[in-house]
Design a protein around this nucleic acid. Structure first.
Length: 197
DNA sequence: TCATTGATTTGCT
DNA sequence: GCAAATCAATGAT
């Protein structure tokens, strides 16, 4: 067996995410995804960004698309963990990763690592930058052309605050972000969130 | 088939 | 800070 080809020369610690990563409480996954990388495109010239903001959508959560059970739109949320759940709202797409049945993590912001890829501050801009549409809904978020990978993790502080942009459940503190990162969407004044690590 | 809603973004005041 | 854009999904009729 030949050694796995490293998609990024010089980043030897880059490795696929095991599916067990997503089979954990959704808030845990949302937090664990911070600092990990989203990768798209050819192995030779991938497009890469670092996740800096996520939100958890959990059971018995009125803001969760799965709240009322399976529908044609949300059916992948009831499938295996580690798949993309992508939906469209207004004129943009938002990308989530499925965790446990009926729960998912919304990817809210990332910062470009590839040259020319700026701050992706907002779920719509993030999904668009990586070509995530309804076409990708249901595909593996760890093995497909657009995928998440474990990055060499620099230890960083994580902040938690209320979710934003929703009517119901907006008070729940299920929004996670890397502390002090500029690419976080809709930044709040100091104190909007609590440092937890 | 109809009406309502929205996990957003943008532009204007 | 606020409203409009703009349309698919959803639930009601």
């Amino acid at each position: 067996m030949r050694p796995r080809q490293d998609p990024l020369s010089g980043t030897g610690t880059l490795r696929p995410i095991p599916s067990a990563f997503f089979d954990r409480p959704t808030a845990t996954v949302a937090r664990a995804l911070l600092g990990q990388w989203i990768v798209a495109g050819p192995r030779g010239a991938p497009r890469i960004a670092r996740l800096v903001e996520t939100e958890a959508y959990v059971a018995r959560d009125r803001a969760n698309h799965a709240f009322r059970g399976p529908t044609p739109r949300n059916r992948t949320m009831f499938g295996p963990p580690g798949r993309w759940y992508v939906y469209r709202i207004h004129q943009v797409h938002c990308a989530n990763v499925v965790t446990r049945p009926g729960e998912a993590v919304l990817l809210r912001a990332a910062e470009g690592i590839s040259p020319g890829l700026g701050p992706l501050n907002g779920p719509g801009r993030l999904a668009r930058a990586f070509g995530l549409t309804r076409e990708e809904d249901g595909r593996s978020a760890t093995r497909a052309a657009v995928r998440l990978v474990l990055a060499p993790p620099p230890p960083e502080r994580v902040v938690v605050g209320p979710r934003i942009g929703i009517r119901h459940g907006a008070r729940r503190r299920l929004r996670y972000a890397l502390h002090g990162v500029a690419a976080v969407s809709r930044p709040r004044p100091p104190g909007w969130a609590r440092v937890v690590t």
